[in-house]
Nucleic acid binder design. Structure first.
Lengths: 259, 259
DNA sequence: CGTGCAGTTGCATCATGTGCAACGGTCATT
DNA sequence: AATGACCGTTGCACATGATGCAACTGCACG
């Protein structure tokens, strides 16, 4: 909507692919060098872009700062974290928390076995949206039309023989997940890794986040992992209760909304 | 330099503090609501900003994607990583890799004991620039004038009684580090954590990154950790050799540059 | 010593971003 | 129920501010 800003922001993904000099930026943007220069300077002032010794530009540090601050401030994450830690202490496995946003699913917290290490290593990276338990949970809650539209648009990479193969199977899986209120990923992403997950809901009943417990085959069998399901669901429900109950001050009104 | 872009980008740190609605954004930007709307829409189209159900805006997922891609593409990181892993396998402790940029020091890689987990949990967060071993290494290499100017500008929080107390002590410490070619942090940030670090240099001899090994008191004493210094230095030197030698294709000319 | 290339600057033009005022929807008040 | 306040949204006329050009600089290379 705003040409100048639009052009400036287009520079970011361009630089994400690797450093580029002024000429390259101008060319790939389709603008005059002087224009590109001014845009880059503005980005630079805000720290989003950094100029290395060879004069080429690359993405800057402030970007990390922003991403960091953003994730720190997510209400759900804050509320959920202690619950995730507690769950991890009881079962010992890796615990994930994820949200859905604009056709992407991303992890916003993770508790690793033993160490309570928040690791954002996969943030931003395309999560295996067609197979991950948390992805199924988040997508299952979308209105049917959206689910259908999304399924059509997706690729279905066969990470393993047990990966979701196509849109039809995916939609069926989502329907199941939607009905039963929990989800699994049994070797669909990595042959030897299984997950069980449950949804976290807002005051209006809609799924706002999803959590899962993951463990490799060699530690516990899929059956053993599934036996944790009640515990996982109880944890998710506890988070749901706290989240939908305690934050009426944050949201304008915790009621309405339909779309 | 470009007013429109400048305003748009100013929205990001604003939203990093927490979600805000249109009115708040417009007010804090000092522009008309309709202007703020158009800027937000543009940011939204690029995924940098997300609109939650209550219509308020917060930072978007693409931000993480960009930060992620950016860090993935850092040459030093790529080259250093296997060396860091090898070092970790030999000594078992946590290994960090950091760079300096625009008055900030940030971690770009980390190898945790046992697990080769890349953890960006501290990326973007103000690293304890006055005490961390890697920070000292990176800052020690700046031209003296810059060091002095920076030291004046800094705060010197006393994380522990052993933290660097003031600018004078800091500059002295940097001089020492500069001369000896390695640095430590003995309980200066967390009472029980010690670190030893060494610099990684580019072809021109300037410090481009720094690495360190950290371990808690309870596992190894400071003396024991210091005994790892030769190993740490050898690792850093190995990275230096590979980095300054092998990448003549990436940089225009691996020679010149002085500023 | 000249040629070519990349980054930078100043400037005239007009495209673009701007603020205003008016509309529509939702919620709170009387 | 009806009223009023508030917030997001739209269309528009104006002039601010972004654009591309051309000329200048500094550097590297032949």
């Amino acid at each position: 909507m705003s040409q100048t800003v639009d052009r400036a922001l287009s520079i970011l993904p361009l630089l994400a692919q690797g450093p580029a000099d002024l000429g390259q930026v101008a060319e790939r943007l389709g603008v005059h060098k002087s224009t590109a220069l001014r845009l880059l300077r503005t980005l630079h002032e805000h720290g989003l872009v950094y100029r290395q010794q060879d004069q080429r530009y690359r993405l800057g540090a402030r970007l990390f700062a922003l991403a960091q601050e953003a994730v720190e401030n997510l209400d759900v994450r804050e509320i959920a974290h202690p619950h995730l830690v507690a769950l991890n202490e009881r079962c010992g496995h890796t615990v994930h928390l994820a949200v859905y946003e604009e056709n992407e699913v991303l992890y916003i917290d993770k508790v690793e076995s033993r160490y309570p290490v928040r690791m954002y290593s996969r943030i931003g990276k395309p999560v295996a949206i067609t197979v991950a338990a948390v992805a199924k949970l988040l997508l299952a809650d979308l209105p049917e039309a959206d689910r259908r539209a999304l399924a059509e648009r997706l690729d279905f990479p066969m990470y393993t023989p047990r990966s979701t193969p196509n849109a039809a199977a995916f939609l069926k899986e989502l329907a199941t997940v939607r009905e039963q209120g929990w989800a699994t990923d049994l070797g669909g992403h990595e042959e030897s890794i299984n997950c069980v997950g449950a949804p976290i809901r807002g005051a209006d009943g809609r799924v706002v986040a999803a959590m899962s417990v993951s463990a490799p085959n060699v530690v516990v069998t899929a059956e053993e992992l599934l036996s944790l399901l009640p515990l996982v669901r109880r944890t998710a429900d506890a988070i749901t209760r706290e989240y939908s109950g305690s934050s009426p001050g944050r949201h304008h009104t915790p009621s309405e909304d339909s779309a």
